[in-house]
Amino acid sequence: MKILAPVSSAREARHLISCGAGELYCGLHPGIRPGESGKLWVNRRGPGPANISSGEEIKRLTEYAGRQGVPVYLTLNLPFYPPAQYPEIVGLAEEAASSWGIKAFIVGDPGMITALREKIPGVSIHVSSLLAVLNSASASLFRDLGGSRIIFPRYMGLEELGEIVSRVGPETEYEVFMLNDGCVFEEGYCQASHAFGGAFCHQPWQYRPIYIPGLPERQPREPFWQHLGDYRRWLWYIKNCGGMRGPGGAPLGMCGLCAIPNLQAMGVASLKIVGRESPLQKKMASVKLIKEALRIADSLSNEDTVRERIKKLRGTPGLCDSGYMCYFR
């Protein structure tokens, strides 16, 4: 089982690998190039700390990582690209695979998967969580289209996850979210954009329940304001617990560490840390936390004991017991 960490520079790679990252993923924002149809967004983040700004820097990063035996993947995870950008993205991917040392592409658009498979023979594709693979039929389709790895979306039930993996088979690799950052909605079916004032679901909406005529009115006993309070509490977890850190310095927020024994048993290959834009310290703390959780899981045979020890490692029993911080529940 490998730890997949986000990386934004060659310098970061050195630290993350030394902490235990076994795979890295990065993004690219090349800016505007002459003759292009518009500003080229390659993934879901624009210019800034989430992205590397040049192929040369990616090359430096992959060269270092390659010497340590750590593969680097590039995110091409926009849910769709305007038609004119397909040739540009395919060209960029060709260059990334042949010259920059990128080992696989994380792709969120079925059209782009088709284009990459057609234009770059042998290309390795990881099926992004943006494609919302929620069932074995969907996983089988993307496997047949050439996906070598399925990245499952957040909040999968462990039982269902196991069923999908066993039906699709061990030839495909599987990756799950492990630390940091939740989504209120299904990422693959969210068609709002963070570019217009941040996450749509984080907007301070005021909600008012309206009764729809036709059926007998039947409100729950719980007052709506109380439920809204719980919802806002849950949002706080989704939003990384306000950026707080746990007692050991590890970031708080969405977490799947307790599920490691189950994930190991079903053959999941990769545990993903979210947050290409995060500061290096947060990324390193996340890698260290998973590494320690894996060590605990490897050293003990009783799953309940493993979970207890991992919860202790987290150091926030109150937050863990709420259930709101869990990717898998």
Binding site: F196, G197, P204, Y207, Y211
Partner: peptide, 12 residues
């Protein structure tokens, strides 16, 4: 039976 009206105080 219900839907939730969403009011946007920020005017977004």
């Amino acid at each position: 039976r219900y839907f939730l009206e969403m009011d946007d105080l920020s005017g977004c």
